[in-house]
């Protein structure tokens, strides 16, 4: 079983959104991103020097990261900022599953 994802940074944007950066136990996988809730939009930019991934659930959160690297960033929308850490960790566990 993979170790739990770890929160490495949490800060608030000027507008009030909360950013949570999480380090996964293993590198971010594209197939794991594709399994996330279908209400979000996934974009993986393979043409960049490193494949940049962006998963957006409107009104809820934006997840960004580089496929193959461990650190991912969640930007939680204002309405969900109070549960930012637990939401980010829950999604990170889905990514690690």
């Amino acid at each position: 079983m993979s170790p739990d994802p770890e929160v490495v940074l949490m800060r608030d944007c000027l507008g009030g959104e909360r950013v949570v950066e999480i380090e996964l136990a293993d590198g971010l996988r594209r197939d794991a991103l594709e399994r996330l809730d279908g209400s979000g939009t996934l974009m993986v930019l393979d043409s960049l020097p490193k494949p940049f991934a962006r998963y957006d659930r409107p009104g809820f959160f934006l997840l960004t990261g580089i496929v193959g690297e461990r650190r991912v960033r969640f930007t939680m929308r204002l309405a969900h900022r109070d549960r930012a850490e637990e939401t980010a960790l829950a999604v990170a566990r889905e990514l690690a599953a």
């Binding site: 000027l14 043409s47 960049l48 934006l62």
Partner: peptide
């Protein structure tokens, strides 16, 4: 060219979340 190709479009709040910024 790579940055110009990034999805720099406004979200439902009219903001453009990119580069870890709005």
């Amino acid at each position: 060219e790579a940055v110009a190709g990034l999805p720099l479009a406004g979200n439902e709040e009219g903001l453009i979340p990119a580069f870890g910024l709005y």
